[in-house]
């Protein structure tokens, strides 16, 4: 007869949603590699730039008039915290890139303030990524990346660039701010891809 330990089979739903090496927090820690940029909505602009140099841009009014989603997602920071059930409002990358002609396979997200991070284009498509401008029903505050940030919850959260300014579509991959400083190029929390040797 099998020895059933107390609690066996009663594993909390949360545990199954926690990637290896992570702990759960209900806070929303602020991580920042530099001063918080303050961008007025009248000067804010989002650009998509293709590998041929073609630019599509949205003003704040144009951007917030696009159809928006309200994803509720778990987020995982490489500094080991995970936060479950975060509620956002944002524009899907499928919507933003719908009319963009490109053969690119890679994207570099550029931020106001100089930050950058790189991702495969396919990771931004099929309902897996957004440009988010509300958190928990409120406008996204500057310390969390407002006016608008990238939201790619299936990768470590450094890939979800705060203060998003432009998405550069590229034929080749170009590592960003943390990827050039020892962090993993892809950053899958479920495979614990924290550092480049992982």
């Amino acid at each position: 007869m099998a020895l059933i330990t107390p609690g066996f089979g009663g594993r909390r739903r949360d545990d199954a949603n926690l990637p290896p090496g992570q702990y759960r927090t209900d806070d929303f820690p602020v991580l920042s590699a530099g001063p918080t940029p303050r961008i007025g909505l009248d000067e804010w602009e989002l650009a998509v730039i293709t590998e041929t140099g073609e630019r599509s841009t949205w003003s704040w009014a144009e951007f917030t008039a696009l159809p928006a989603d309200e994803p509720t997602v778990d987020i995982h920071c490489v500094t080991h915290w995970s936060k479950f059930g975060t509620r956002w409002r944002g524009v899907s990358l499928d919507t933003l890139l719908a009319d963009v002609e490109t053969a690119a396979e890679y994207v570099v997200a550029h931020s106001y303030g100089g930050y950058s991070t790189n991702l495969p284009l396919e990771d931004l498509l099929d309902g897996r990524a957004w440009v988010a401008y509300e958190f928990d029903g409120e406008p996204l505050v500057p310390v969390h990346g407002g006016p608008a940030r990238l939201l790619v919850p299936h990768l470590y959260f450094w890939k979800s660039a705060k203060w998003l300014r432009a998405l550069e579509l590229r034929l080749d991959d170009e590592p960003g701010f943390w990827e050039t400083a020892g962090y993993h190029n892809y950053g899958d929390p479920w495979r614990e891809q924290r550092y480049r040797a992982d």
Binding site: L31, A33, G34, G182
Partner: peptide, 15 residues
């Protein structure tokens, strides 16, 4: 800036 995935040292003159 030490509240980050690493330590980021910035020039106090130009940032």
């Amino acid at each position: 800036f030490d509240r980050a995935p690493g330590l980021v040292a910035r020039c106090p003159g130009c940032g």
